[in-house]
């Protein structure tokens, strides 16, 4: 590998390392959990933030784009927001409602024009990764008026597209990220479908399948009931996750997030490449997720032990 390729994004990685001190640490979370009032928690957050602006994923993305605007690997991180926004826009087009409040940011899509593109069926105006899915989902939704079915199609396409595009970059970190995302999504989908007694046609549409979770086997296990599904998952590298899912879906969700964080941590010691940049985005995303969980738990009156149990593993 050439010197230039080997040392790509040296400036971005150094900048990210300088920014790591702004991320929430386990100690910060501990203090936030201990805060007796909302005001106290906010003051702790303000102290952490210092004179800087509040951490948002949009600001993190914009920061990363300053250093790596052409990085295809990083763009994969926004696929889930893009496909979510497609779902929101499709429903808005059908129902005639305003999708703006359901949109997630950052995104690779032009959100101002997304609904218009779908209305005009001007699919070539969409980015390549979402083009076919948008067309298929629109056709399915208008034909069946089954929002759940269209959502499943989009969710499955989101995972498949992520896997394919990650493979195309040839970046091991992003391939592993895509595989973890696929496994988490497929296990969740298969479990829900199994519980709800969905048929083969629905599962065929909703399950993406991947390297470790073979699509046909997963569908067949899900169709035979949850016990069969867990038996199948026991034979895969996700047996630990399956055991947690059996106990509680909340514990399973935490396992999925923690597995992605473990992957992010593997990139923390690198000085070059897109991996530390992606890891920083994942870290910021997880920090914000922890804050959201904390807020919801406090509002619902959850005890300290429950909150601590639900907190995701952190980067720093």
């Amino acid at each position: 590998m050439s010197f230039k390729k080997e040392t790509k994004y040296a400036d971005g990685v150094a900048a990210v390392k300088a920014m790591e001190s702004t991320l929430l640490t386990a100690g910060d979370i501990e203090q936030l959990i201990s805060a007796s009032t909302k005001a106290e928690a906010e003051s702790l957050l303000n102290a952490k933030r210092g004179s800087g602006e509040a951490l948002s994923l949009e600001s993190v993305w914009s920061f990363l784009q300053d250093y790596a605007p052409d990085c295809a690997e990083l763009k994969l991180l926004l696929y889930k927001n893009d496909f979510h926004n497609l779902k929101a826009a499709l429903k808005a087009v059908i129902s005639g409602k305003e999708p703006e409040r359901y949109y997630l940011r950052p995104t690779l899509l032009e959100l101002d024009t997304l609904s218009g593109i779908l209305l005009k069926k001007d699919y070539p105006a969409l980015p390549e990764h979402i083009r076919d899915t948008a067309e298929r989902a629109y056709e399915l939704l208008t034909r069946t008026m089954d929002g759940q079915l269209a959502d499943s199609l989009i969710d499955s396409a989101a995972v498949s597209t992520l896997l394919n595009d990650a493979e195309r970059t040839g970046n091991d970190f992003m391939i592993k990220y895509a595989e973890l995302t696929e496994a988490a999504a497929d296990i969740k989908t298969a479990y829900r479908c199994s519980v709800m007694g969905k048929n083969t046609a629905f599962l065929e549409l909703a399950v993406a399948g991947g390297k470790d979770l073979e699509k046909d086997q997963l569908i067949s296990a899900a169709l035979s009931g949850t016990e069969s599904l867990f038996e199948y998952l026991d034979t895969t590298p996700y047996s630990e996750a399956a055991a947690l899912l059996k106990r509680s879906p909340v514990a399973f969700e935490k396992w999925c997030d923690d597995a992605v964080m473990e992957l992010a941590e593997s990139a923390r010691l690198l000085s070059f490449g897109s991996e530390p940049l992606a890891a920083y985005y994942i870290a910021a995303e997880t920090g914000l997720k922890n804050l959201r969980i904390l807020t919801v738990c406090r509002e619902s009156g959850a005890d300290r032990e429950t909150i601590t149990e639900r907190m995701r593993r952190l980067y720093v």
Partner: peptide
């Protein structure tokens, strides 16, 4: 030249976030 250039890139990344360094 390659070495100094590379460190310069990384240094610029840090200085863009924290000029005091």
């Amino acid at each position: 030249a390659k070495g100094v250039g590379l460190v310069g890139e990384a240094a610029a990344g840090v200085v863009s976030v924290d000029p005091s360094k």
